[in-house]
Design a protein around this nucleic acid. Structure first.
Lengths: 122, 122
DNA sequence: CCGCATCCAATCTGATACTG
DNA sequence: CAGTATCAGATTGGATGCGG
């Protein structure tokens, strides 16, 4: 019952580090854009708030998937990039991304249905 | 800001259907075990409660990733299995699973560090 | 520009107990 | 066996405002 690192399987282990509303997206953009500044990342991951972005970035940093580089300039300049571990995870994310592209029409359809249903019934 | 089905990318679309604490695990086990009864699935996905399992199963069913078969017997017998769409998603999940296996030692290590830190500071 | 702190709302999660 | 109901607590989410 405690979150002991007793993983039931590989997927379980992976989920511990990518669970978070925006984390996969963050990793995905970092993989695409390379080192990227905070503000740019914030714009790339649309709709994310400062709070969540920073929070997730810190966790990803603690999990050694993301590297933070503070240039200590005025005005501040901070860049984020993936560590080797993060890059390998990004690659594992590619098929999921492709799946989304290939099935976007279908996903969109079921989603619209679901929302129509949620609106009244449930 | 509303959850319009205006996906920013494929990954975004994918995340809409697999977001949920146990969903990837559920899909993973369904892919491995084929049609599986409710109770068995519950034991496979360790630590999940009835409430969450049912809730996620219903959503996955609504998203057309999972098929529910009720044999209408007494005592009840219900089997869950993946739809073709679900199976394709399961395949996209395989690399993530492998990533976890390959990096489990590292993930475990950073996780233990994090928890030690959480315990006091934060 | 980058980020932290605070407050508050919404959502999610899980134990427990109960039903057909 | 396969769920459902309820309720409390945890977690997440975001708007706003401030600070180096």
């Amino acid at each position: 019952m405690p979150s002991l690192p007793g993983f039931t399987c590989g997927l379980d282990a992976t989920l511990r580090v990518v669970s978070g509303k925006w984390k996969p997206l963050i990793i995905y953009f970092l993989a695409q854009e390379g080192p990227i500044r905070y503000g740019e990342l914030r714009r790339a991951v649309r709709d994310v708030s400062d709070k969540m972005l920073i929070q997730h970035l810190k966790e990803l940093e603690a999990d050694e998937l993301v590297k933070r580089t503070d240039f200590r300039e005025i005005p501040p300049r901070v860049e984020y990039s993936l560590t080797p571990l993060g890059r390998s995870l990004a690659e594992a994310l590619v098929p999921l991304c492709n799946w989304g592209v290939e099935n976007m029409v279908e996903v969109k359809r079921v989603f619209e249905q679901r929302q129509a249903g949620d609106a009244k019934g449930r």
